[in-house]
Amino acid sequence: MWKTIVRRVLVMIPQLFVLSLLIFGLAKLMPGDPFTGMITPQTDPNVIEELREKAGLNDPWYVQYYHWIVNAFHGDFGDSYAFKDSVSSLIGERALNTFWLSLFTVLLVYLIAIPLGIYAGRFQNSLFDKGTVLYSFVTYAIPTFVLGLLILFFFGYKLDWFPTSGSVDVKYDAGTWGYFMSKLYHLILPGFTGAILGTTSVIQYLRSEVIDAKTQDYVKTARSKGVPMKKIYSKHIFRNSLLPIAAFLGFTITGLLGGSIFIETIFGYPGMGQLFIESLGQRDYSVITALVMLFGFLSLLGSLLSDIIMSIVDPRIRIE
């Protein structure tokens, strides 16, 4: 298995290289550049031209690519054109925000979805099951921004229970207990919105797996041995029906850094999704390329992780 993992990691290098070429080329093909948005009668066009020249944007693309890749190998992804800050520190801040939000969301998803899925499957066609199915249809059908705005308006503005924007209250100093609590407080609304939307697939998988498992031979065997029903569900069926979720776990872990554009925008939460969209709009090349490379790397890593996890939880699968 170790051999395979090393091989997979090595294969990532050419994959990432191709991705970097693609994204670099595509980014340059977009109309405009980071300085297009600067035109005002107060700005001297020659100054903009000079900045463009200084930034090397007038060089042919392969020259620009060469400079970029050489710097990237030294861990330097350049400066953001829009934020005038180094790309790594910019992404670092946002990644941390997004990480906390995603972690909170994922925990909530499992907390809500696992009991619902298992019980709905166990008591198939009961009122509880029907309620759960209805719940997943509704959350499946509702668009993110509708749910996000509804939750924000109701709990944020109408009831005034939760903060409506940002990731932390400005009055606390970093590192204090109040700061931590304020961060958590700001996570609740966006976290819940993401969690409600995220539960659908987990519930449906679990439910159908449990229903499937009920008629499997190993369950019949266990029952004929006289194992109590409670134990059959908590030991035998539960483990087996978690398999499809385990298959996603790798992606879920790496997806913690991807962020959600809608939720972040609605709740004014500065994370990765928002940064990505914004840098696209402003043609902030250095940020765009760094982000896509990061996302690409994360999905490759995620698929590897998923395979490894699967081979651990399901002995029938072997990585060769």
Binding site: L149, L152, F153, Y157, K158, D160, T164, S165, G166, V170, K171, T265, I266, F267, G268
Partner: peptide
């Protein structure tokens, strides 16, 4: 003075509720 960002979709609601 505390200045904080507000998204354009909710700016009107924020003024209405005295944020």
């Amino acid at each position: 003075v505390v200045i904080s960002t507000v998204s354009s979709a909710t700016a009107a609601e924020a003024m209405k509720t005295g944020k």
